[in-house]
Design a protein around this nucleic acid. Structure first.
Lengths: 214, 214
DNA sequence: TTGACAAGTGAACACTCGTACACTATATTT
DNA sequence: AAATATAGTGTACGAGTGTTCACTTGTCAA
């Protein structure tokens, strides 16, 4: 199988990546075309089909703007991709008041700067200060900051931030038989089963952990 | 200004958030409607307009799936908002070649930017990529980056980076009866007792831990 | 030269999707 | 009782959007 991309395909993949990270949603075929000065959408489509076939993205057929990225071509190629540091400043969320949106003023504790090379699609990232020890076996301790990306796709066993009945919690995500389980990483705690009675919402995927010692 | 959400509006906002995080792109009006068992898109639109008016999201008019959740104004918009956050760039050290000074060229993998607010006296800090699982009970895993400060005073039980016989290791530091012990945080490993025969030197104190998930 | 392949055009088509309007229903407030 | 706000239905329209087809251009290897 030749999964290598042509130059044009790579250009287009990069553009989609950039577009999503800047806008929060994927581009249409015509938006891609016009970005490259192309007049027809068919060329774009053929490229997308190729990218899909090679596993770089997924496309929901017959739906608009339904491209999702699969993997980043540059990642893992070189060991030292820490080179150009783009720094982004993200808000830090402390204790979340019951019922309030997580990013509402009252919850904010300030901002921190992080190296954006660690996180793709980092537009709406924020940092959440962890309380409790329910994730110590995953190396997340009380007082740690977890970096949360609300736009990243959540897969089985990912660590996520979720809201259950006005409480914000960090757990491993698991979906079985259409039921959602939130698994702590500490033998002292039991998994949470999300029922219809719960007010449940996924807030985002944990993409990083930051701890410091004083 | 009354920015409080009605119950229904909050439900819908949560759903959009969840949808984006699960799919990577925003839902259409009809997808929102059908999720709530609604038959018409108009009700949804009215809710979205309300949410937009109250500042919880942005909508690109006449474009499909063009909902974006609203971020805090300070969130990573510009590439260089170093304003409130002082950022320092520190070198990243990968595998350390035996016998070489830890900061020698061959060991460097690049640099990362860090918010200097976390670390006082950060002049000579560097980051070290951890190999091995000897500190998992301290929440330091294989592949994590530890931030090391060579200038910070090392006290009993601090986590340190040390060189023992050409090997770089991360352990808890303990001094008893004028003898130095390096204590791993993993039951699989035994403490290291530093003797005079060892080529031992303390490199620095671990002041932070950074992990990211891809 | 021939053939294969990447890349693009222009037009046509059908489905998707946001927008709009009139009407209904149920609370809560005045 | 009347007014107001929230919530939803059903239908319709037009622009947005993915899909498809026949045809053209340029490059590269056999």
């Amino acid at each position: 199988m030749k999964n290598k991309l042509t130059d044009r395909q790579k250009e287009i993949l990069d553009f989609i990546q950039k577009f999503i990270s800047e806008n929060g949603f994927p581009p249409t075929l015509r938006e891609i075309a016009s970005n490259f000065g192309m007049a027809s959408t068919f060329g774009v489509k053929r490229h997308l089909d190729a990218l899909k076939k090679k596993g770089y993205l997924k496309i929901e057929s017959f739906a608009s703007r339904a491209i999702t990225l699969n993997k980043i071509p540059s990642a893992g190629e070189s060991d030292n991709n820490f080179i150009n540091n783009k720094v982004i400043s993200i808000p830090v969320v402390g204790r979340v008041a019951a019922g309030s949106p997580i990013l509402s003023e009252e919850n904010l504790q300030g901002t921190i700067a992080i190296d954006s090379n660690f996180f793709r699609n980092n537009k709406d990232c924020f940092a959440l200060k962890v309380t409790g020890d329910s994730m110590i076996n995953a190396g997340i301790f009380d007082g740690d900051l977890v970096i949360v990306n609300p736009n990243e796709k959540v897969s089985q066993h990912d660590i996520v931030v979720a809201r259950v009945d006005d409480e914000i919690t960090v757990k491993n995500y698991e979906k079985k038989n259409n039921k959602v389980f939130l698994i702590p990483q500490n033998d002292k705690y039991e998994p949470i089963t999300v029922t219809e009675r719960n007010n449940f919402s996924l807030i985002g995927k944990v993409v990083g952990v930051l701890r410091w010692f004083n």
